[in-house]
């Protein structure tokens, strides 16, 4: 009787069972390669484990000590400050330039627009790992392209790799990242039906009114999503800062983004536990931003 009931239940829910089984491999992969490493990172952040030295052999559970040390660690806050500056300025620049490029792509009637759009998209066509190499040769103080150009106009050389190194990082990030805004916002503009504007014109709406009443409400959510995604992408940026900084932190911490600080703590000073604690802080920030992103994405 019981077997019959089970059989009936299976027959009734066959679709769900098959669907559930189909996601098992993906879940197993996520569990193995995401959940387990994340769990290890969280666990390590509560220990004084080191990659080398006595603490690599005899490490112990130290509770929240790493997190308490973080609060009083002047370098952590310096790193946080640099990261916030980097994210805020990058956000403004990536968004503004990307938005202008998106407007150009959707509104302009210039000949050769497709070619120009392709040029706009070039940074995203170049592999990310190549960006810093290209830019290091551009910004090198004695031989770099930018200082050579400045010199040819009789202008003083700039300290792109020291005095203005944070600005240099932001410049590279903006160059590499504005295309994201451009693509996202161009698709948002394109998705607005032309009929809406035609109706607005019939009612005598001005350009500003059309923007306020038609365009903005329809691009509001992609726009917010775009801002969150840019910030989320930048908060754990690593590659450009690493390429400029090398293995050890710069003495002035001008390129020490949070992710780089975590890396240096774990792999330069070999304080794995502390590095994991910094990494977990970044993960919390990204998690909060992801929740926000999901909230807006649903809307």
């Amino acid at each position: 009787m019981k077997i019959l009931k089970i059989k009936a239940w299976i027959r009734d829910n066959l679709d769900q069972i098959v669907l559930s089984l189909l996601i098992v491999p993906a879940l197993a992969l996520i569990f193995t390669f995401q959940f387990i490493p994340a769990a290890w990172t969280i666990w390590f952040s509560f220990t004084d484990m080191a990659l080398i030295g006595k603490k690599a052999l005899n490490w112990s559970f130290i509770g929240f000590k790493n997190y308490l040390d973080l609060i009083t660690d002047v370098y952590f806050w310096r790193s946080m400050n640099v990261t916030i500056q980097y994210c805020a300025v990058s956000l403004v620049l990536r968004f503004t330039i990307g938005m202008l490029a998106a407007l150009f792509m959707t509104l302009s009637k210039v000949k050769g627009k497709i070619f120009i759009a392709a040029v706009f998209l070039l940074p995203s066509a170049i592999p990310g790992i190549m960006h810093p190499y290209v830019w290091i040769s551009m910004l090198e103080p004695n031989y770099g392209t930018l200082n050579t150009i400045l010199g040819s106009f009789g202008l003083p050389r700039q300290s792109w790799t020291y005095g203005a190194v944070t600005e240099s990082l932001i410049m590279i990030n903006t160059w590499a990242g504005y295309t994201f805004t451009m693509i996202l916002m161009a698709s948002a503009f394109k998705s607005i039906p032309r009929e809406y504007y035609e109706v607005a014109e019939v009612y005598g709406a001005s350009r500003w009114q059309k923007f306020r009443k038609v365009t903005f409400p329809l691009i509001k959510f992609p726009l917010i999503l775009c801002l969150i995604l840019i910030f989320k992408e930048d908060i754990d940026d690593f590659t450009y800062a690493y390429m400029f900084t090398g293995e050890s932190p710069r003495p002035d911490f001008k390129t020490e983004l949070l992710s780089l600080y975590a890396y240096h703590k774990a792999f330069h000073y070999y304080e794995l536990g502390f590095g994991c604690a910094v990494g977990f802080i970044i993960a919390i920030i990204v998690f909060v931003l992801t929740l926000l992103q999901l909230k807006f994405a649903r809307l």
Binding site: E140, P141, N142, Y143, S159, T161, Y162, G246, P251
Partner: peptide, 18 residues
């Protein structure tokens, strides 16, 4: 002091007679 802070390529400068 920019030599250290900007990480100049002194070996290249030397090779070029600079």
């Amino acid at each position: 002091k920019e030599f250290k802070l900007e990480r100049w390529d002194d070996r290249k400068l030397f090779a070029e007679g600079k």
